[in-house]
Amino acid sequence: MIQLTDVYKTFTVKDKRSRAKKQIEAVKGLSLTVKPGEIYGLLGPNGAGKSTTLRMIAGLMQADQGQIQVCGIDTKAEPEKARAMVGYLSTDLNVYGRFTPRELLRLFGEFQGVDAKVAERRGMHLLEKLQLLDFADVKMEGFSSGQKQKVSIARALLHDPKVVIFDEPTTGLDVLTAKTVLDLLRIMRSEGRSVIVSTHVMPMVDEICDRVGIIFDGELHGDAAPKQILETWNAKTLDEVFFQLAARSAAEV
């Protein structure tokens, strides 16, 4: 279970020209809940606040205001405990190129408090699912971005997390591998995990998300099943919803 209540996050940036400091509100009063056994799609254009929200849920960042709970654990009060519940994957993450997938998974298993042998066994199982088992003992330096992404997915799921956060999980993957990842997400849903994904790939949202939240300019616009969102916005596709939001935002400015 993921629960965000009235979350705010502000960044301070420096204007290069005027040298003045500016406050940018990345997330404004965001509240959402992802139940166990549910896949929640967080949609929005670049810079809307998706990644910041996911990083806050993953315990990599702290909210300025509001509360974030992961399986009932406050991410601010007990960040380590909360992170132990989370499997986090982002396009910003890379793998340690000098290691083989087997070595990396053993090591990260230990980091997450899993016995090295158990971690290895689970890791090999995940690599098999992701069709990468043949490369388990090959140094990752020469891996393609898709292969690295697969290893990252295995790394994120290694400690059997109750909450899965995938930021752009299919980026860089070919169609077949992307399908494997989506199947994996479905399995995680069926296992009762709370899954939150951010993506730009709209067909993927239609295919797997139970509910979606559209985030625009740091605010959540709509939090419902994809079909309901389309009905509410009187749109045929989610892309259209984006355009309407963008037009509304431009008019407000």
Partner: peptide, 14 residues
């Protein structure tokens, strides 16, 4: 620079 620090920080290690 290599993008590996975040994966380390996303673990439950303090």
């Amino acid at each position: 620079e290599r993008g590996t620090l975040l994966s380390l920080l996303s673990t439950s290690l303090p």
